[in-house]
């Protein structure tokens, strides 16, 4: 239940309207939320779940189908290999980890987009990593409370 709610919220926040250049700073909320559940509820959420949420994101927002599915599942897989280490990080290091994860995701995503679009690789593609690191305590905190409410 908490899972569905947070995922829907994430899908809405993905299109979080920001003015002008601020749009480059929008964190990939769906990725952050699925990464949280991947670590918090490994019995329910696996890489397949992340793959499907990426697919849903692509379908809803009219991207080329499969781009987010690929980028998110590969990122989730790499996170899963470091699962035990990641779960015991303190908050500042969690933020750092979130930044690395988002950088990885952005790199994969933008690379797949090069297939059909002309994207200029420049610093703005890593802005979401910084903003994710800053927002991670908020995201993780609210997801933790959501989990407590629906337990």
């Amino acid at each position: 239940m908490a899972l569905c709610l947070s995922l829907i919220a994430g899908l809405f926040l993905y299109s979080l309207p920001l003015q002008g250049d601020l749009a480059f700073w929008r964190p990939p909320f769906v990725l952050l939320i699925s990464a949280y559940w991947l670590l918090a509820q490994p019995q329910h959420v696996g890489i397949t779940f992340v793959w499907f949420s990426g697919l849903l994101l692509d379908l809803l927002y009219g991207n080329v189908i499969g781009q987010n599915a690929l980028a998110m599942s590969v990122t989730a897989y790499l996170l899963k290999t470091q699962e035990n280490r990641a779960r015991h990080l303190s908050l500042p290091f969690q933020c750092l980890a979130a930044m690395l994860i988002v950088m990885l995701y952005q790199t994969i995503w933008m690379s797949t987009r090069l297939v059909s679009e002309d994207i200029v690789f420049s610093w703005p593609i890593f802005y979401p990593a910084l903003s994710s690191a800053l927002l991670w305590p908020l995201v993780a905190g609210s997801l933790y409370h959501l989990q407590r409410i629906f337990r």
Binding site: I47, T48, W51, G54, L55, V64, I65, G66, Q67, A69, L70, S73, V74, Y77, T112, V115, S116
Partner: peptide, 17 residues
Amino acid sequence: MLILALAALTLIALDSF
């Protein structure tokens, strides 16, 4: 994992081309 990645790549190729 490999299967999922391949499936995603196939979808990307199908939808792009």
